[in-house]
């Protein structure tokens, strides 16, 4: 499989920044979830956020599309700053897809209906056009035969693939993944990672919070290591996994049993 994982040389060679985090801070009472994060995501780049639980990586991801409000700092999407009022970020959210740890498929809609929801309600597509788009996406994630299944009749891995298709139906410029495989049975993790890998190969800009180090190692252009609400190290995956510069990164990787 490794030979099919050859990557395009991108990342730093492409200069245009899509997402920029500037001194992002988030505090819950006394607890500091994000202690001033600066980061840039470039068009076409796959950025993996790794680090121990509670290190702030998921919080940063949710700040990206305004599902979480920041205590201070700025997030720019395509040059536009996110509003402090979460309700005003609707237009930006339409251009970013998001995949959740617990899938969050709509239980009252079929797989197809889930994918059609966004295009029909938000983009105002006709049912016919939305259906065509949804069917193509279901084929893309390999679930055409499950079109009329309700989420209750799909495995976790299948649900997450539908969730990815649902996000893609909005034709987003960026995809955000919040621990997309953490709630999955081990045997279905691979099918979801494969879909994500193909998406990356197609040139999609992706920000992925993950505990799947193999995925980060093989697919990411840029890996960012979090600890205690701060970025402790970032760089190309080879560098992070093969020659980590900080003790924090080494501790985290050895804790996971990562041996390169």
């Amino acid at each position: 499989m490794t030979d099919t994982l050859a990557k395009l040389p991108q990342g730093s060679t492409l200069p245009d920044v899509v997402i920029e985090y500037r001194d992002v801070r988030k505090q819950y009472g006394e607890f500091v979830a994000l202690a001033g994060v600066n980061l840039e995501v470039r068009r076409g780049q796959v950025v993996c956020l790794i680090g121990p639980s509670g290190s702030g990586k998921s919080t940063l991801l949710r700040c990206t599309n305004g599902l979480e409000t920041m205590s201070s700092g700025e997030v720019y999407f395509d040059g536009m700053p996110l509003s402090k009022d979460p309700r005003k970020n609707r237009l930006i959210r339409q251009r970013m897809g998001m995949v959740f740890q617990n899938f969050e498929l709509f239980p009252h809609k079929t797989a197809l209906g889930n994918i059609m929801m966004g295009p029909m309600t938000v983009l105002g597509l006709s049912e016919e056009k939305a259906r065509t788009r949804a069917e193509a996406l279901l084929a893309k994630v390999g679930l055409s035969e499950k079109a009329s299944n309700y989420p209750a009749n799909l495995s976790g891995g299948q649900q997450q693939r539908v969730a990815i298709a649902r996000a893609l139906a909005m034709e987003p410029e960026v995809m955000l993944f919040d621990e997309p495989t953490s709630a999955l049975d081990p045997e279905t993790i691979g099918e979801v990672l494969n879909v994500m890998k193909r998406l990356a190969d197609d040139g999609m800009t992706m920000v992925v919070v993950t505990h799947e180090m193999t995925f980060a190692r093989r697919v990411a252009d840029h890996v960012v290591v979090f600890a205690n609400g701060q970025i402790v190290e970032q760089g190309r995956p080879e560098q992070i996994f093969d020659a980590p510069q900080t003790t924090r990164t080494r501790d985290f990787l050895s804790h996971l049993g990562w041996d390169g």
């Binding site: 237009l91 969050e104 909005m170």
Partner: peptide, 12 residues
């Protein structure tokens, strides 16, 4: 989470 999923799609 269902509300967040709708928000992530850009729904009102």
């Amino acid at each position: 989470g269902q509300v967040r999923a709708g928000m992530a799609l850009g729904m009102t």
